[in-house]
Design a protein around this nucleic acid. Sequence first.
RNA 1: GGAGAGGUGGCAGAGUGGUCGAAUGCGCCGGUUUCGAAAACCGGUGUGCCUUUACGGGUACCGGGGGUUCGAAUCCCUCCCUCUCCGCCA
Length: 423
Amino acid sequence: MIDLAALRSHPDSFRKAWGDRGAPADVDALLAQDTLVRELKTRAEGLKAELNQASKAIGPLAKAGGAALDEAKARARALGDQQKAVDAEREAAEKALADQLLYLPNPCLAEVPLGKDAADNRVAAEWGEEPRFDFAPKPHWDLAPALGIMDFERGAKLAGSGFVTLRGVGARLSRALVSWFLDQHLASGYTEWAVPYLVTPQIMQGTGQLPKFADQLYACKDDPLLLVPTAEVPLTNLHAGEILDAASLPLQYCAHTPCFRREAGAAGVGTRGLTRVHQFDKVEMVWFTTAERSRADLETMRGHAEALLRGLGLRHRVLQLCTGDTGFSAACTFDLEVWSPGTNGWLEVSSCSTFTDFQARRAGIRVRGTDGKPQLVHTLNGSGLALPRCLIALIETYQQADGSVVIPPVLRPYLGGLERIVR
RNA sequence: GGAGAGGUGGCAGAGUGGUCGAAUGCGCCGGUUUCGAAAACCGGUGUGCCUUUACGGGUACCGGGGGUUCGAAUCCCUCCCUCUCCGCCA
């Protein structure tokens, strides 16, 4: 959620920011609504003050009783009716404003390149050479089933299209990656959490999934709970409604969770094999930091994600997303894309963003400043990393002519020393 | 899932219709005292919003929501959470 006071003081910068995102908003209407809300609030509170005075005066009269008391009560009641009417107007106006605010995206940082869609994203860094093969490299959907480490048909049998199974060494390899990722994060100072995979709608609103993206979430039938689309949601909301100790910042959290996404509207596009599935594992990094250092911390966190790909020896690049491609709650985002030799393309395995105070304002996450006053924190999050696409890149990159796959040395300790996956 | 007991400020804990944003203690901050510290004493110490150049004023918040009343921490309804016991169970 944006800062209404900031909108009041420089409406033009917001007008431009939303325009740059391709999500123009009627700023004048917003400001008019805001003015209306404040007028009604002043009137309602003024009446309430009068009513409180009148009620207070009744106390001493109450014992005596009689006509004076009845008269005073009647006057207070009339005042109360008037107050209730104005307050109802205020409430309606406030709700109307809040409903609009919840759908307004976070303005991007000034450095974010202007652009309409993914084609306008800027390549910020590249790492690794394109792998050479003296044979035609296969895509993972051919390689993995042949090795007996993935079974797509049986995933579909269990839960429908978009669900997969990992088998044998495939399942173990995924678990090895999770463990290695987490261990790397712990070494970088992160605290690991295990969190609920189901959360309340209020929590989803805190990080920005609701109300705008309700159609992307899985919901439970008999309970008002939703499956998390990313560990960002529970991790960021851990401190919802809290005032943190300044000395504790920055807080660096990580967690491994499955992620559940309906992917409504994404059917058919790049969905083969493991590329886009409704349920996948991911290790997520979340930071709580200050306005002063959040941008620099984003670089650090992004570095942590990149280090994982380097450790695995996987060719990758970093994109700075343009204004039109940056997600709703984010102010600046770097995507990490890994090279998939089997499909001759890039796959997004991480998205590292600063949310400035946008999520903190929604979720009520503050820190006590040096002046003793609470102020909003800045939140960051980034994947570190998403598992399925790492698996894809890994087996495609390290495939051999005979169809076997060599395991990167860093993972071998997690696989009982296994060096190669053979059929 | 059933029965019971509870949810009050950073913590502990009073308060059962009015003068209660809330006693008291602890903690914390400042001051006096001291060579310094401790102790003692004095003062201060929640959050959001509206309004104001400022000082200030107003309003809301005693788990959440709703209701009764001129007036609710206090009464009623409802939901959530915690604890104890029972049941069930990884």
